[in-house]
Amino acid sequence: MPAFTATVTVRLKQGVLDPEAETTRQALERLGFDVEALRTADRFELDLAAADPATAEEQATEMTERLLANPTLHEYEVTVDRR
């Protein structure tokens, strides 16, 4: 079967406080940088085999829904590339 890398980006939904990002932003300001806002995200790269890109995306989406993201906190996007 063809080999793919599915890349899943999980980030906090708009409106969910991100204290780690704010702490990081403040540290950047202490270093003399001017940063208006800073957002963080988790990125997962999944190497998998699937019949076609659509199936690979479907598999990665199910993994994200069941584990990688928490629907209360997160939104996510999935992209698929041939490996």
Binding site: V16, D18, P19, E22, T23, N70, T72, L73
Partner: peptide, 11 residues
């Protein structure tokens, strides 16, 4: 239970 417990507001 619904909801989630996540990072404290002041880290």
């Amino acid at each position: 239970a619904p909801g989630a417990f996540t990072t404290n507001d002041r880290s």
